[in-house]
Design a protein around this nucleic acid. Sequence first.
DNA 1: TTGTAGGCGTTATCAC
DNA 2: GTGATAACGCCTACAA
Lengths: 342, 342
Amino acid sequence: MTDLPATVTLADVAREAGVSKMTVSNVINNKPGMSEDTRQRVRHAIDRTGYVVNPAARALSSKRPRNNLIGVLTPQLNWPWVAELLHGASTTAEAAGLNLAIFTTASNPTLERERATLLRTLADGVLLVIPSAEEHSIFGDSVPVVTLGGHGQHTVQVDNYTGGYLATKHLIDLGHTRVAHLAGQNDDTPLRDATDRQAGYHAALLDAGLPVPDAYVQKGEYAEDVAERVTRTLLTLPEPPTAIFAANDLSAIGALRAAAALGRRVPQDLSIVGFDDIHAAAVTDPPLTTVRQPLEEMGQAAARLLIHLTRNEPTDSHVRFPATLVVRGSTAPPGQEAHMDP
Amino acid sequence: MTDLPATVTLADVAREAGVSKMTVSNVINNKPGMSEDTRQRVRHAIDRTGYVVNPAARALSSKRPRNNLIGVLTPQLNWPWVAELLHGASTTAEAAGLNLAIFTTASNPTLERERATLLRTLADGVLLVIPSAEEHSIFGDSVPVVTLGGHGQHTVQVDNYTGGYLATKHLIDLGHTRVAHLAGQNDDTPLRDATDRQAGYHAALLDAGLPVPDAYVQKGEYAEDVAERVTRTLLTLPEPPTAIFAANDLSAIGALRAAAALGRRVPQDLSIVGFDDIHAAAVTDPPLTTVRQPLEEMGQAAARLLIHLTRNEPTDSHVRFPATLVVRGSTAPPGQEAHMDP
DNA sequence: TTGTAGGCGTTATCAC
DNA sequence: GTGATAACGCCTACAA
């Protein structure tokens, strides 16, 4: 447990072990072709000196370094959806001996490019969470890329369309005919996920022969405060919806808030379905009926995919997880009490 | 918006501008002492070529690189407490033109050291979130370090002792005499924060002349599932507590679950106070009375502190935020309805 | 099986 | 003001 801030280099270890730098390097990288004796001697020298490779130097000298590093680019860390996803990824990565370096998406273009350069040179692979179109192009094929919640060459996704369909159908089956939607879309970037969920919503209504008044589809932007504001508008419509399908749990919670503020009881006066099944969905008042994404598993799958890619092992290109409906207390037939399964 | 994955180096820019590499380097680093004319010419060349510095190379050649990078070491990303803290830090860092590179604490010692080396060489400063003793020693004084929720040379903290005291006093003032505590402690690492909160709890009971049966202080380990299990035990005691002060909101939510499972109504049969005031605390059923930490501000303060340190500007060594009680629906006098402020 | 030379992209140093 | 040269620590390629 001695801490020598002085940097130990390959040369130091080599001197200590009485070999050349290259031999030490080869031992470190588990290269074959050297006597077991030498290998041991070097190992000991490494332990004694407390040597650790300098990833920067390694990155500089070899084009495709093995730094045990996976870079992650993600918006907003305090989005529960992201946190749970990354938790899964981190678990799997660590089990495989890989570090996760997480960067939040920079607004500043210079920062963005610096960060990309850093990852391109340093990381074994990159995990993109809900990336913008530009984020993709930055990496080209300089390093393996897996996309979580978006499109790309290698992706991990939930079946958003079916999820949207299931949520809406659940409301229809309960007897609702006026079903609104808080879409995930915002103006800047048309997110694929949001579009698919909305398509599922439309399809379910269409299959049931129900109309979709334009005013019933609002942009919730995946955000709690926006959803709250928009829900107020919906509920004060001349003919307000009796049920809302929110594109994610956060906006469902916003809707919950708006309902409470306007004195509408959930689910008696208004049914609400979310999407994601984040941790918080189970403890809201009332507990949220929602479409479950297996977030942790999805994160794990993404990490696994990336690990295979970095090792040039064969893998699937696209992993799609099923969306399942979790019925809790926020949905009921219009004008009635909740019917909950235990 | 052209994407040339081919790496542009200083030499390329130098050739383009008709100057030497050093001049380009000097322009990039805003070094004084060159004609405005040259500076402009180089600037243009940089734009034309799309040059971006290679942080790895920079790290290698200079002992104290300015990479616009703050490294963060944190346990568990899906801890809401952490997510909200880091969100704050990230906001401030980005506004100052700094990238945040977030690493989750590795269990593997080799990974841990590699990661530390990476940060030591690459980062301008390091932010440690609830660090273990060892994590501190890794960095020595090779790079500025700020600690969030722990001790060290530069720290940002909430007043945990007073927080614990406030929470407990609130329960006592409501008339509770049998007040239990779900401590944050686990066996491995005695966290300073947890100890302080518990000390506040003890002091409040002592000041009120109330006893603290050993059986009333249990290890909730800051975790929802552990807290749920332990609360079940507490509630089935011959003389169960009528109120519980949980060391964080997550364990308070666990307690909420246990109460529901055992058919105890909150707050009529059992009052619960949490700690942190994470986002979810406001939407639980019932909404959680809790001790608020200004998490986002704390993250911002930590980032600001670090930024000053990296610039060798004078700063406070320790920033302490006050803890405030937020009364919601999970507390009431024993055997009575909640008395909520709107 | 082991060692030597050279270069990765940048900055420090010191001449010009 | 500007530029050549030598590191920084490691790996690739090749030689012994």
